[in-house]
Amino acid sequence: MNLYREEQFRELYEAYKDKVFRLCLGFLANEAQADDLFQDIMLKIWNKLDSFREESQIGTWVYRIATNTALQSIHKQKKAKETSAPLPAEMAEIPQTSVDEGDPRLTMLKKQMATLKEIDRLILSLLLEGCSYQEIAEITGLSMSNVGVKIKRIKERLRKKLTHHE
């Protein structure tokens, strides 16, 4: 049983590590923080593996855990900041981006993601992973129509920025 669970986790880890890591990166932008969040998510997946029911897609289940953990981590960070020195509102909202030496469009995309609201950052990350509107709705717990509206706004905003950038 233990070996089966370990094997199941290893397979899942191999299949989803990059996707979950990108979600963390899209959410936090800073690689070191994304690393921490990634480990928290993987541990939660490990702990909850027994509670996975075959009725939902494993991918949706993994993303749901990742999304919830990411949102919880941001709330924890906010709480911690409230008890320490206050930051200006915009600084508290926007994560610090790490230096990216890759494709300039990717750097631009990450910069734009960092300016979005938390939930929009998650929706865009899921969209970039190729999730359908319905999957995004299932993962985030939002209605399909709400997801549609949000994606439209995000795309519009990105289009403007990317056109402006070119």
Binding site: R10, Y13, L25, D35, F38, L109, G130, L158
Partner: peptide, 24 residues
């Protein structure tokens, strides 16, 4: 925008994790 999105998706999905395994 859909073409742009596809390009961005490709770029985005090219990023790989380099994090530690729990088993490590």
């Amino acid at each position: 925008m859909n073409d742009d999105l596809r390009d961005l998706q490709e770029l985005w999905q090219g990023q790989e994790s380099h994090t530690k395994d729990v088993s490590e």
